[in-house]
Write a protein that binds this DNA or RNA. Structure first.
Lengths: 179, 179
DNA sequence: TTATAATTACAGTAATTCCTGAAATTACGA
DNA sequence: TCGTAATTTCAGGAATTACTGTAATTATAA
């Protein structure tokens, strides 16, 4: 499979950004290629497009599937597996948020809950205890809020984002009307 | 400086999570220690508390300063530099959002703007072009929204988050009242 | 200034992560 | 079921990142 210079730039950028996003260069490249490719493609297409080893591509695709960023599928009359990146950008965004939360936040929340389980008022660690509590409260508030936002209709969510800071006016209005 | 087993658990957890957060184990540990320590401490305190080399601590503190997560300060009559993690958890949250955006999103936004600068309708890359545009739109909408949220009073922001999905009622109300 | 304490830069090494090629396994079509 | 294409596993090596100790630099108190 061939890649145009235009596509190449995009793919290489994703490769370079990979390390900042917690994935390897090749995983970044593979995703970029799938993202800008309309038709499903197979692993060998990726090998020939990006010049990676077959096994590396296989591992990369597994990782992308674990992120739910790539879906495998079978084409009738072809024994190979094909892959496609879901097209809906908002769905991608939600998935990314969910997966990063699962990997980056949830373990810390568990740890905090566990550490704070039994009250230790009066121990020499009172300040630490307090800071852990603050952290837990913040994480619980923001993950609950994220859950709420994920429930909203997409149209509603977009409307809300476009409203931006204007939402505070609504909030003020609400307070005034005591509802 | 000594660390209690209770504090130790928290510090080690942050160390382990470091790699998922894009920092090294020691940087994670240093921040955790500062986060749960009320008084400013100096580099040697950190060395003795965590058992790291002096130079590693120095580099780690530099990195944490580049994240704006740690502030250096001087105590009168002491020539050493002391460090403290800002205490306001909401401020920390904002800083994290800003810095991660700067590192993880802004470079991609630049790349996209650059790639999409001149209209290329009719090229063979039309689909890729379209997908880049979608990505750009999403990033611009969400970073603008983030900017707006950062402008809000903290009280307002917290109120809004606690409101959660209830915000859609306000939105509906607003539409009904044609304002 | 000067002496010295404190910090940082850097080169070398350790540890980790990434990637490849070969071998093993899986799964499909005949 | 068998043969083969496709995929995955895995050990070894390459590349990157992290860490240490030393040397150089900086900055402060005398």
């Amino acid at each position: 499979m061939n890649v145009t210079p235009y596509q190449q730039d995009f793919i290489l950028h994703f490769g370079e950004m990979g390390s900042r996003w917690g994935i390897s260069r090749t995983v970044g490249q593979i995703y970029a290629l799938l993202y800008i490719t309309e038709a499903p493609i197979n692993a060998d297409d990726i090998v020939s497009a990006l010049g990676l080893s077959r096994s590396n591509v296989s591992m990369g695709l597994k990782e992308l599937q674990s992120w739910r960023l790539v879906k495998p599928q079978h084409l009738p009359g072809d024994r190979r597996e094909y892959f496609q990146a879901p097209a809906d950008i908002w769905q991608i965004f939600r998935t990314l948020v969910e997966e990063r939360r699962k990997r980056e936040v949830d373990p810390t929340l568990s740890m905090l809950r566990n550490a704070l389980m039994n009250d230790r008022t009066g121990t020499p660690d009172e300040y630490a205890e307090q800071r852990l509590k603050e952290m837990q409260d913040l994480i619980e508030l923001s993950t609950q809020w994220l859950d709420d936002m994920q429930q909203l209709e997409q149209r509603t969510a977009v409307k809300l984002m476009k409203l931006g800071g204007g939402v505070s006016k609504l909030l003020a209005g609400k307070a005034g009307r005591r509802s």
